[in-house]
């Protein structure tokens, strides 16, 4: 036998056996051994899909009409003033306000998912030739294969040698997680290469590498899921300020650490989860201010 049943296991095929087959048998049996070339591994495809799933798409018809209006408006503007031609050379900026996420494609087809309160700048015209962008805040990238892809932040530079990763750069914190492929991170003249499941963070001025984190736990903000492990309450409140566009202030949470998960919950549910075990209480004022204080029995 050439192949057994459904399984594509080849038993040694001799010339004698092959010659004994009719042409139809040769075709049928040989064709069962084919496999199909793929652009990505199944895991990579799933990562890509999950990233897209997190972003609600607008109904197509509506957006198409808007594009026509914009196109009309844009052409009128171009005719009236050629000063605007210079605007083309200005870097493109994409911003998210607090409480807002966005997703967009770069000129080379790479995809960016921008977390709340973040900013990306790049040169629209030359991006395809030179893939460089500046990031403030946090973003997840699905990078198309091709020339080196550089992400510059105030604390360090990320060079992508693969396909998907998360970059966090706010205040003093700089952290990069790799989901697929390979990433090179440089800061202060030191560099680290990280592979899937690894992340590197800037600590006291040097990059420290961590491994063993499940890829599924990384960059979960895209799905509204947050994991905190021994994280200062101050940074958790910072994150909540960005996600819900509120101000959080008060006392009793300095130098304290929290471990826990949140997924697509309301602000008061999350605050309950944090405050209760920490012996804290909160009150929400004017819908957008949160005062935290020590619970006194």
């Amino acid at each position: 036998m050439f192949y057994h049943g459904g399984h594509k296991k080849v038993s040694e095929l001799s010339k004698q056996v092959f010659d004994s087959f009719t042409p139809e048998e040769k075709i049928q049996r040989f064709a069962s051994g084919y496999s199909i070339p793929k652009k990505y591994t199944k895991e990579e495809s799933f990562q890509h899909l999950r990233a897209k799933m997190a972003v609600q798409r607008k109904p197509e018809k509506q957006s198409r009409r808007i594009i026509y209006y914009w196109a009309a408006a844009a052409s009128v503007l171009l005719i009236i003033s050629f000063v605007s031609v210079f605007a083309v050379f200005a870097p493109t900026k994409v911003l998210t306000a607090n409480g807002e996420h966005t997703a967009f494609d770069l000129p080379d087809g790479s995809e960016v998912f921008l977390n709340a309160g973040s900013k990306i700048k790049y040169a629209e015209r030359s991006f395809k030739q030179k893939r460089v962008l500046k990031l403030q805040g946090e973003a997840f990238f699905l990078v198309q294969k091709g020339s080196p892809f550089l992400i510059k932040t105030s604390r360090g530079t990320v060079e992508i040698l693969g396909t998907s990763l998360n970059v966090f750069s706010r205040d003093n914190r700089f952290e990069v997680s790799c989901l697929t492929g390979k990433v090179k991170v440089s800061s202060n003249g030191h560099s680290e290469i990280i592979t899937p499941g690894e992340r590197t963070a800037l600590e006291n001025g040097t990059l420290v590498k961590y491994s063993g984190e499940p890829v599924d736990n990384m960059a979960t903000w895209r799905f509204g899921v947050y994991h905190f492990v021994q994280t200062p309450l101050i940074s958790i409140f910072d994150e909540l300020e960005r996600q819900f566009d509120v101000k959080i202030y008060g006392t009793g949470f300095e130098n304290r650490l929290f471990t826990g998960n949140f997924s697509n919950q309301k602000l008061n549910e999350i605050l309950d989860t944090i405050c209760l075990p920490m012996g804290l209480a909160y009150e929400i004022k004017d819908g957008n201010k949160v005062r935290i204080y020590k619970k006194t029995e």
């Binding site: 095929l13 001799s14 051994g33 199909i36």
Partner: peptide, 18 residues
């Protein structure tokens, strides 16, 4: 079509001609 065939990865052949 550019498909791979398992015969090339799983089998050794009696003769180069075959």
């Amino acid at each position: 079509m550019k498909m791979n065939h398992s015969v090339w990865s799983e089998q050794s052949f009696e003769t180069p001609e075959f």
